[in-house]
């Protein structure tokens, strides 16, 4: 685990901005996002709809909290859970041969493929570092 305070600050800002922007881009058209979720063919119609209403807000809140440093660990924990879920979802989708947009950034989304997997793994690495950062780094965190 990385302990350098500057690295940890950079990780927080990167993950925070990515999640904040991701949520913001999806919030305007929940039905389109629900359709993106449905395209993965894993959850039901109703679950897709409810997830599309709530998930962008979780991303916005976690993003804002990571940027500001408030509730840093709970938001890093949630973000890590989400990223782990996204990685499994994309992996399963690729294994099943389903060609779907990830839906991650609203209309700016790209295909759920290995590049997205790499991006999610990298973000997960950042968020786990934030989550498990020792208390010593807290006093330096912005």
């Amino acid at each position: 685990m990385i302990r350098n305070k500057y690295f940890l600050l950079a990780f927080r800002l990167i993950v925070g901005v990515v999640f904040f922007a991701s949520g913001l881009l999806k919030i305007g058209d929940p039905l389109a996002f629900a359709q993106d979720i449905k395209n993965f063919r894993i959850v039901s119609h109703e679950v897709s709809f409810m997830t599309a209403l709530i998930l962008p807000w979780i991303e916005i809140l976690c993003g804002a909290l990571l940027i500001t440093g408030i509730l840093r660990r709970p938001s890093a924990f949630l973000v890590s859970c989400l990223l782990a879920g996204f990685i499994i979802l994309v992996g399963v989708t690729m294994a099943r041969g389903i060609d779907a947009d990830c839906g991650c950034f609203g209309t700016l989304s790209h295909r759920a493929d290995w590049r997205l997997l790499v991006q999610d793994v990298l973000l997960l690495f950042f968020s786990l570092n934030i989550l498990f950062a020792g208390s010593a780094s807290r006093k330096y965190s912005a």
């Binding site: 929940p30 809140l61 509730l71 709970p74």
Partner: peptide, 24 residues
């Protein structure tokens, strides 16, 4: 504390999501 904080964030997101898209 981490789990409790995460639960609070999820609860806030549920309330915001339902309120913002109430007509839907």
């Amino acid at each position: 504390k981490t789990i409790l904080g995460a639960a609070l964030i999820v609860l806030a997101a549920v309330l915001l999501g339902l309120a913002a898209h109430f007509p839907l």
